[in-house]
Amino acid sequence: DYYQTLGLARGASDEEIKRAYRRQALRYHPDKNKEPGAEEKFKEIAEAYDVLSDPRKREIFD
């Protein structure tokens, strides 16, 4: 679930989605986080943001 990936509730505003993405992206960015799995988590976060930030894709997902 993309909302869960970003730590959001369904119905989150565009601003909340953007804030959550930035927070998670900084936390799991491969240059900042060298833990195994961080790069994969970063890709999941980017995919979630891509879907939720686009109104058309978000409507299909919801």
Rank of each mutant, 00 (worst) to 15 (best):
L26P: 03
L8Q: 03
R56M: 06
D14W: 10
N33I: 08
Q4E: 02
D54R: 03
D62H: 03
Y21I: 01
S53P: 00
P36W: 14
E47V: 11
K18C: 11
G11A: 04
D54G: 05
Q4A: 04
P30K: 12
K32M: 02
K32P: 04
A20R: 03
P55V: 08
T5A: 09
S13V: 05
F42K: 03
G7N: 05
K57I: 02
K34C: 06
K18F: 10
E44V: 05
E39Y: 08
L26S: 10
I45R: 01
L52D: 02
A20T: 04
P36M: 15
D14T: 09
Y3H: 05
R27Y: 15
F42Y: 08
A46C: 14
P30S: 14
V51K: 01
I17A: 02
E16N: 06
E39S: 13
R56F: 12
Q24K: 13
P30M: 14
I45H: 02
G11V: 06
Y3D: 01
F42S: 09
L26I: 15
E15Y: 04
L6V: 01
Y2Q: 05
G7A: 06
A9P: 11
S53F: 02
S13H: 06
A38Y: 02
K43P: 00
I60H: 05
K34N: 02
G37H: 10
L6P: 01
K41T: 07
R58G: 04
Y21A: 01
Y28K: 07
R10T: 10
F42H: 11
E44S: 11
H29W: 09
P36I: 13
S13E: 07
L52W: 00
A25M: 12
K34D: 06
R23Q: 13
D31T: 14
R58I: 02
I60K: 13
H29Y: 08
K34G: 05
A12R: 00
E59V: 07
Y2C: 09
P36C: 13
L26V: 12
P30F: 07
N33L: 14
A9G: 03
E44G: 12
Y2I: 03
H29S: 14
P36V: 13
S13Y: 01
R27S: 13
V51Y: 07
Y3S: 01
E39N: 14
H29N: 14
D50N: 14
K41L: 09
Y28N: 05
E59S: 07
F42D: 04
Q24H: 09
A12L: 01
R27W: 11
D31M: 12
R27P: 07
I17C: 03
E40A: 14
E39M: 14
E16I: 02
E15W: 06
R22K: 13
G11Q: 06
D54H: 14
P30N: 13
E47F: 02
A38I: 10
E35T: 12
Y2N: 04
R10L: 08
G7M: 08
E44T: 10
G11P: 04
E40L: 15
A46L: 01
L6D: 01
K18D: 06
R27E: 14
E47K: 12
L26A: 09
P30V: 11
A48W: 00
D54T: 12
E44A: 14
L8Y: 00
Q24G: 06
D1P: 01
G37C: 10
P55H: 08
D31R: 06
F42E: 06
E40K: 15
A38Q: 10
E16S: 08
Y49F: 15
E15M: 08
E59M: 05
A48Q: 01
Y3M: 01
Y28H: 03
D62F: 06
D62G: 08
V51G: 05
V51R: 06
E15T: 11
D1Y: 06
K43I: 10
P30W: 03
G37M: 10
K18W: 09
Y3L: 01
E39F: 09
S13Q: 10
G11W: 03
R23K: 15
D62L: 10
E15Q: 07
I17L: 09
P30E: 11
E35W: 13
R27V: 13
A46S: 13
D62W: 04
R58Y: 02
L6H: 00
A20P: 00
K34R: 10
N33V: 09
A38H: 06
A9I: 09
D54S: 11
A48V: 00
K41W: 05
P55W: 07
K57D: 03
D31S: 15
G11C: 06
K18Y: 10
S13T: 12
D50C: 11
E40T: 11
H29R: 12
Y49G: 08
I17D: 01
R27L: 15
P55I: 06
E16A: 14
S53C: 14
A25R: 14
L52Q: 01
I60F: 07
E40I: 15
R58C: 05
E35M: 12
Y2G: 01
K32L: 02
Q4W: 07
G37P: 06
P36D: 05
Y28A: 08
D14M: 12
D14S: 11
Q24N: 10
V51D: 03
Y3P: 02
N33Q: 11
I45F: 03
A38E: 13
T5Y: 06
